[in-house]
Each structure stands twice: as C-alpha cells, then as structure tokens.
Design a protein around this nucleic acid. Structure first.
Length: 513
RNA sequence: GGCCCCUUCGUCUAUCGGCUAGGACGCCAGGUUUUCAUCCUGGAAAGAGGGGUUCGAUUCCCCUAGGGGCUGCCA
C-alpha cells in the first residue's frame, strides 16, 4: 500500500526514552508490513525545552536499532521540511484561517490572569478549571473584546495566543484501531491553544497540519495522546480535512518494573537498568544515563523484547528477527493494557540472541572491548573464546568479565574450593600430569583430554579428583567452559605456567587454612 | 476531583461462549555434565469482586474495586 504512511514524531528535549523506541518500532513494522513509508518528524516547537544533541541522539538510536526512517530531516522526502521549527509559517497560516472561519479566537490573557482564573474556579469548588465555553466570556479575548480593541492590541504588538473555539453540546467519537470507538463530550474539552504567544504552534496544531500535508494515513502513538485526540478530530473538521483524516491507534504504555506509574528515566538508576537505547551524557550526573547499547544489548534483542511489550503474534514463537516481525506484525494484535517493563525478560532475549550469534560475529562485536582492555589476541583466539563463553553470558561485557582469565593471569583463586579439594600430598602426582601435558604432541581439546584420561587410569583417579584441580589452577574459579577446551585455547606454555603457579597458590592457601 | 482507557499465573501473554485455562520469563525440583552454563523433564503459580444474559461464561452487558493516562502558552 503505497499510501500507507506513518510517522514517528519525537520531541528533541532529551534522550529518547525506550517507550519512544517502541513507538518508533511499531510504526516501522507496520510501514514495512503494509509496504508503506516510515517518516521521522522532529517536533521542536517548544523553544524552552529544546535540547541540543537530542535530534542527533534520536537518529543514532534509530540507526543503532536498525529501524531507520525513509523520510525525515537529512534523509530526504518530498513533503518536508521534517523539522517543525522550519514549518512555522504554515502553522500560523492555518491558525489564522481557523480564526477567520470562526473556529478559533485571539486570546490576550497573561499567565497571571490564567492562573487567577484557575484559582478562582478551584476556590469555587471546581477541580478541573478549564478555559472553555463556560469561562471564555470572562477572559480577555476576541470573543469578549470589541473589534477595535482586538485590532489595536494586535497592531500594538501585544502578545496573544490563538485558541480553538470548542462548541459544547456535542459528542466526538474517535475511532481507534486498538481500542474501538472512544467518545468524548465537547463540554469536557477546553479551548486548547493552537498558536503560542511566541508564534510557535502547540503540539496539537502542528501535529494536525503536518500529518495532513505529509499525507499521514495512520497515527500510531502512545496512549497519553488518547484524551487529546478529541481535539485533534475537531481540528481536522475545522480545517475541513476530515475526509483525509488519518486513522488512530493508541499504544498501551510501558509501566515501571515495580511500583506505580509509567516507566520513567528515574527507574533507570533506581533499579540499575537501562531505560534509554543509548547512553546520554546530560549536564549533570543525575541527567546522565547508561543505554541498552552500552549495557551490551544486541539491538535485535532489544527490538524483539520491545515488540512483545504490548503485542504478540498469537503463536508460541517468541524469537523474531526484524524481518519476521515486520511480516508477522499487525495492529489487530496490539494489546490494550499497559505492560510492565520486565528486565529479566529483556536479559533472556539477549541471552538467546548471543547464543544464536555465530562465534565470528561475536568476536567482531567483542573486539572493541578487548582492545579497550589492552588485551592482545588474534581473531581466531577471540572467535574460539566466544564459542566457549556464549552460553554463559547475558551481555557482551560479561564475556570479558567472566572469562578474563583467557586474556591475563588468574587474579583470584576460589579459596573455599581449594581448601576442600586440594591435597598437598598429591602434588607430585599432578606434576606427573603436568609433565605429560607439557610433552603432549596434540594440544587440541581432544588431545589433552586423552593425556588426562591416560593419567587418570594410570593412577586410578576419577574426573572429580583431577578436573576441579586443573580448573582452579588454570582459571581460579570453579565456573567456566570445559577444562579441555580451556587448555587447548590457553595453549601448552600458558597451561604449564598456570599449573605451577596455581599449585603453589594451593599449597599456600592450604597452609594458611 | 473530572474525563478517558485498561483488568487471565509475580511478569509478558494465548483464549475471539463449551477449559483438565495454553506458552514464555522468573522461581523450585530432578536429569545430562569434570564445574558453571546450555539443554531436557517435572512442579508451584491466574480469569479482581458482585450482579445479570445464556443450557453454559475467563470470553457478552452493568455496577463496584483496582491500575493507568490526561486535565500546561510540554510534547
């Protein structure tokens, strides 16, 4: 469907929240599924909250995830510009048209006056103070002021806003693709500001104008927008664009892992989990966050995890490559209720992706971290290493933390197990094994295994007598890959060296104990 | 407070009136294994409550409760 056009419209006010990434993902997936177009639009209409670097962050995050838009700032597309600050005149024009057609009006109320109105209404027992049909007539606007007065205020350059004139007594029905029909009474709707006193449009105005001219067919966004959709429908009507109004789909929100409310950036450091795709360095430490990428997540795993937060294919398949997601995705199967951010599940997805990634590829991804640590190993070594460790890690950095001893000497030994298993009187015996290993011709895993087995049968020893000792002297820990694989990868000289050092350590540990 | 949305295991969810309520994560137990992990097997674990409608409700309707969102010259 060539005319299936969707957009992701974030505001560059800071790092892009993971919920935003999911919204982008759903838009992207639907665009691909429908053979449509995925558009990025930057909604930078709030001068005060604008954050330099945020737009770049958004682009980089989408690129990292592999869900890049086809149209957007710097990406081309015939219906740009795709940055709202560059479309300012357009919004002014249509806001004016709204006024001319009687669907909106000028308002001159100051912030103080607005605040006074709220206070007055609250004092009168109204818990939902609104600027609407019931109050607009006591405020300073082109509905209450004389024509001359309005004209002179406008001409004298007095700041003004343009408000939508909501007519009470009607019902607005929003057809939502995930929620069905949702009705709102216009009596409940306030006269939303369309054009701010700085000449910039509000979200509502800019959104409708842009979606119209960018020929957006489906608006897929977070549930927080559902309440204002009634205003949006009213706007389409006032602008006479209802015939081509896009269809709406409001996504369930992502909730906190624990506690109440929707997931927030605070939950990140509160629980030690990422809530942003990429790390973000804000002005202060409190405003800086570690991203999924820096945590060592595979972007595909993140996408897979995110896709299932609010959607499911209806089958029991859970692991989906991006292409498969695009194929299987559908609006009909998007859920209605908010989904808790389940970090354990995210970890599981990442483990699945790491295990499914070919060793060579893992080695490539690990290379920068290896170099950063100053370890010098070749690609073959790294590839083999990844093969040995991939079933034991959750995140990329885990490889180097859990398997550090493949790159440098053992830093700490498991004393508890040494006391339990090391028998000093057997050292001469192990030295026989050490010698046998040192003269082994075949140092492959199978080769050393044979040497060890021969040694065991010759001395009537069991695996349990020998392997733990080898493991602990070579790695310091009881955890890790097959001892024979470890030995083969470490190599003859290194193994010989570690055996000596390890047994020395064991003797000492035993003496102290 | 008002308006809107939502409500199946702890969590993510399947179920589109017939259910012994299925799967996944996590958890527990067992098995495989030289360790850890992987893997395999098994287990505990759910239809918020109350009314209807119906031969029959988790499934449809209503009420209550709970949760979420909105209620800015922020998006």
């Amino acid at each position: 469907m060539k005319n299936f056009r969707v957009r992701f419209a974030p505001s560059p006010t800071g790092a892009l929240h993971i919920g935003g990434v999911r919204t982008a993902l759903y838009n992207y997936l639907l665009a691909r599924k429908m053979g449509g177009t995925f558009i990025l639009r930057i909604e930078d209409t709030d001068q005060t909250r604008y954050m330099p670097g945020a737009e770049e962050y958004i682009m980089e995050a989408l690129r990292w995830c592999g869900i890049e838009p086809e149209e957007g700032p710097g990406l081309g597309g015939d219906l740009g510009p795709y940055r709202q600050s560059e479309r300012k005149d357009l919004y002014g024009k249509y806001a004016q048209q709204l006024v001319d057609n009687g669907h909106a009006y000028y308002a001159f109320d100051t912030a103080e006056e607005l605040e006074a109105l709220r206070e007055r209404l609250k004092a009168a027992g109204n818990h939902a103070p609104k600027y609407d049909a019931s109050t607009r007539l006591v405020m300073k606007n082109s509905l209450t002021l004389s024509e001359e007065e309005v004209k002179s205020r406008l001409e004298s350059g007095e700041p003004f806003t343009i408000r939508l004139k909501v007519v009470p007594g009607h019902t607005v029905v929003v057809k939502d693709l995930v929620r069905g029909e949702v009705s709102f009474q216009t009596d409940e709707l306030d006269d939303k500001i369309m054009l701010k006193s700085d000449g910039m449009p509000t979200y509502h105005m800019a959104n409708i104008v842009d979606d119209h001219f960018m020929k957006i067919s489906h608006v897929i966004r977070g549930e927080e927008w559902l309440p204002s959709t009634a205003h949006h429908v009213l706007l389409y009507r006032a602008l006479n664009w209802e015939a081509t109004m896009p269809q709406f789909a409001h996504l369930p929100l992502i909730l906190k892992p624990t506690g109440k409310g929707k997931l927030s950036k605070r939950d990140g450091d509160r629980l030690g989990i990422p809530v942003f795709p990429l790390s973000w360095k804000g002005a202060t430490p409190e405003d800086s966050f570690t991203g999924f990428r820096e945590f060592g997540f595979d972007p595909q795993a993140v996408l897979n995890f995110l896709a299932f937060l609010g959607w499911n294919p209806g089958t029991e398949q859970e692991i989906f490559a991006l292409d498969e997601l695009a194929e299987a995705f559908s609006i009909e199967r998007i859920g209605k209720s908010g989904a808790r951010f389940d970090f354990d599940k995210a970890r599981w997805f990442n483990e699945q992706y790491i295990m499914a990634t070919p060793d060579e590829e893992l080695a490539q991804k690990l290379r920068p971290l290896v170099d950063e640590q100053g370890y010098s190993v070749n690609d073959d070594f790294l590839t083999a290493f990844c093969g040995l460790m991939k079933e034991r890690v959750t995140f990329l950095p885990d490889f180097l933390e859990k398997g550090y001893y493949f790159f440098k000497p053992v830093e700490s030994y498991d004393d508890k197990n040494i006391r339990k298993r090391w028998k000093p009187e057997r050292r001469p015996l192990f030295e026989v094994l050490q010698a046998a290993l040192a003269s082994a011709e075949d140092y492959s895993a199978a080769g050393v295994e044979q040497v060890v087995k021969d040694f065991m049968t010759a001395n009537e020893l069991k695996f349990g007598d020998v392997l733990p000792i080898l493991r602990i002297t070579l790695a310091g820990t009881m955890k890790g890959p097959s001892v024979f694989d470890m030995m083969a990868l470490l190599g003859k000289a290194e193994v010989n060296d570690r055996l000596t050092k390890g047994m020395d350590y064991c003797d000492r540990a035993k003496l102290i104990a």
